[in-house]
Design a protein around this nucleic acid. Structure first.
Lengths: 229, 229
DNA sequence: CGGTGAATTGATCGCCTTCAACCCTTGTGG
DNA sequence: CCACAAGGGTTGAAGGCGATCAATTCACCG
């Protein structure tokens, strides 16, 4: 392995950054680095996790399947984000599934080492708490959007979210590559409705596309759509 | 006044239960007991809170107003629940509004005393974390429901939620009294659609109503509706 | 170059929103 | 005590948005 958490850059991005030298060393000694190919599942809804994942590279979607078989993507996680924390903290099975959208490299940190810090390092617990408070705020906003906004507004909102929260590639396209179906699952609509909306946005020169890649051309117009103007 | 946190029963229901004698005393000495009449606002979206509220009696709705002016109720909080924690933890303005649905009695605990325990008592922080993890799970489920279920399913789900999570009155009616509009805002639909659904449930003898009060008559049938059977 | 899966477009149907009218309850002032 | 406003509840009808099914094109991969 050789990769030490102490030297890992992604650590700067998440709750692990508040850990002390000794604590990090303990984690680093027990972590397992794993690779997932595009489309592979990190874990599935209802599974019992034995630890949490820290994303080193690549992107994953966290989704939930409802009775009718359709999936709803609740969050996209990329470099530096930790996933699985919620179920470890609640000490229950996961309520979400995670699937790699890219080839990914993740570090698996066994539960015990998280729990230990959870009980001994207030700063760590506090940081986790803040992260979760933020996730919750985001979730609340999403609930309102789902309930009250049109598909067009939600598509616009989703594109804006992807554009601002994930790195863009050299040509200015959104860096996360999603199928139209994934976008639909993120928006919470049918694939066709999502496609039709993208087509109309393209016609109005608000976005441009190239295969699956999407680039936002007119950010202002996009905001107006989100606001329902 | 005169009421000491140490002796307060509602404390058993929330995160404060893990605090030690001294810590509780400090909080009790600085808390302010306030009353709100039905319809009064505890705080509004965007406001900066200086502490958190602990509900002693009564019920409150936590909602969010979207640009189009319609409200979405995200959570109903009753005896023993603490509200405002999220924004205190994130150290930012609230993302929700709280309005009393009943006459209420709440204790206001100044921020400093929460923050102090957050930094010194890991157990307290951990308990808060667990509560928030639970809220987050609940929110994720709600997102999926909003996105994928019909109004009828959501109404059924909401009724089931209210019935199981809040005390029933002597006649077996759901103890929380909501206007039809509030229920609609909880379900995420228009008032009329909500009413029509309730009417149809009444016709099928799945629920009965008496003024605003609602009683669930056939729990099994309700579950079937939720499942989409 | 065929084949497989994704993207796109068309057409239909039904749920839900919206507007409008009316009823019912509650509370308030004369 | 009554009348009347005021707000919530209920029902009707019209119209649109989005889901669904079907057919076609497109892109990529062996």
């Amino acid at each position: 392995m050789g990769n030490r958490c102490e030297n890992c850059i992604v650590r700067q991005l998440n709750s692990l950054k508040v850990l002390g030298k000794e604590e990090l060393k303990a984690i680093s000694d027990h972590k397992i680095t794993r690779k997932f190919k595009k489309g592979e599942s990190l874990f599935s809804e209802g599974e019992k996790l034995n630890g949490i994942f820290c994303v080193r590279s690549g992107v994953t979607k966290l989704s939930k399947i409802s009775e009718n078989g359709k999936g709803q993507i609740v969050k996209i996680a990329s470099k530096g984000e930790m996933i699985g924390q919620r179920s470890i903290i609640s000490e229950e099975q996961t309520n979400l599934s995670a699937v790699a959208l890219d080839d990914m490299e993740v570090c698996f940190i066994p539960k015990e080492h998280i729990m230990k810090n959870l009980s001994s390092n207030v700063e760590f617990t506090k940081t986790l708490l803040k992260h979760m408070a933020n996730d919750l705020k985001h979730a609340d906003t999403l609930i309102v959007n789902m309930a009250q906004k049109t598909v067009k507004q939600r598509v616009a909102e989703t594109l804006s979210y992807l554009d601002t929260n994930f790195e863009r590639d050299l040509d200015g396209f959104i860096g996360v590559i999603l199928t139209r179906e994934d976008i639909a699952n993120l928006v919470g609509t049918a694939k066709e409705a999502c496609i039709r909306t993208l087509t109309s946005l393209r016609k109005d020169n608000i976005i441009s596309t190239q295969g699956k890649r999407i680039k936002i051309e007119d950010k202002k117009a996009l905001y107006n759509i989100i606001q329902g103007i």
